[in-house]
Design a protein around this nucleic acid. Sequence first.
DNA 1: TGTACATCAGTGAACGCGCGTTCACTGATGTAC
DNA 2: TGTACATCAGTGAACGCGCGTTCACTGATGTAC
Lengths: 202, 202
Amino acid sequence: MKKGYHHGNLRQALVDVALELIAAQGPNGFTLSEAAKTADVTPAAVYRHFAGREDLIAEVARQGFDIFAALMEFAYSGGKPSPLAAFEATGRAYLAFARKYPGHYMAMFESGLNLGARPQVAEVALRAKAVQDMAAAGLAAQLPEDRRPPAAMFSAHVWAMSHGVVEQFMRGMNKSPFSPEDLLETGIGIYLRGLGLLSPDR
Amino acid sequence: MKKGYHHGNLRQALVDVALELIAAQGPNGFTLSEAAKTADVTPAAVYRHFAGREDLIAEVARQGFDIFAALMEFAYSGGKPSPLAAFEATGRAYLAFARKYPGHYMAMFESGLNLGARPQVAEVALRAKAVQDMAAAGLAAQLPEDRRPPAAMFSAHVWAMSHGVVEQFMRGMNKSPFSPEDLLETGIGIYLRGLGLLSPDR
DNA sequence: TGTACATCAGTGAACGCGCGTTCACTGATGTAC
DNA sequence: TGTACATCAGTGAACGCGCGTTCACTGATGTAC
């Protein structure tokens, strides 16, 4: 991998190193110098590509939101074949993302990153959230209007359950015999039944 | 507050200072020296009472779990007047705790504290968890056995939803017009209806 | 194809800083007589 | 009640360390001719 004096693509290499360090030691468990050293490069070299540590984490998060948004859009696939199927697919995609990209996930949701100060990152994050909201709204539309929860509430419930399940596993707090996938599917299933969106028998 | 050479109760003063710093700057947003300085004391003085930073955080968490367990036990109050009422009271207690003791909450659930290496803290944490499990089990027992979810699953769902709602607000990710209390109550309510533990009308 | 030169990614030395931790010490407190 | 003394909580100076950041530099790469 050594390329000699010039690295080739140090910027992305630093992002990749940060990802591994974050996944291994938590979102704040690494330093700029550590990242530089791991990438076989002088700390000063980092400044050719990033304004500092915070800037590096923001880029990790940005790439994460980008992947996440793409995954969600793919899962949603325009609401086909049915609002319910599309909704459930986004739920599974959420979990699959957290499982497959833990470093990204932590940088996005657990690093204390200030999205307000990072409009570029916030923009990509909104793209992902828009898909979730659309999936929720499409499903809610199947309910008669007077039994339909407000879109923001429905969305918040689903996010809370999804995020809660992920956290439970990321922090090793789960000792039950159920996989996160099982927990999320059953949890959301029961919730949807409570709304009358799934038939009570099963 | 200055007591002169001797502080009086530096140990607890350091815990209190840590609580404020954690609540203000996140679970890893403070240093031993900072805590000492805030308590108007030399960094070296801290070592009279704690083995180090980690040990201080562990004590914060321990006190948090202690308060938490007491709150939960009070809310549960032996399952009276009904399993459902007791269960819902513990849910509200969870939220009330997070809101009233954010520093404790963060030290307990977001500091990356290793409970395995802190058996004393783990023991208190288990006391709190036992109440939650009891409340969940008591409620689940009202269902016919063949429609009853496994206790561990029920418990995990409720924890996920509760924790997810808290996280959403702690991280400022919530822009909906609903309070955490509203979100949790409605979310759990819909979930319980899905289980057949609440009547479908309302 | 070969050479001269511009570009700029990464070096390595240097800096000031705050951290965690240690140590011999000092002075406040409480207690024995 | 008063005095001598033991205890021990907190001091302050010192240390080595790794951090973030800067700077003049060097050498690899690519391009113009």
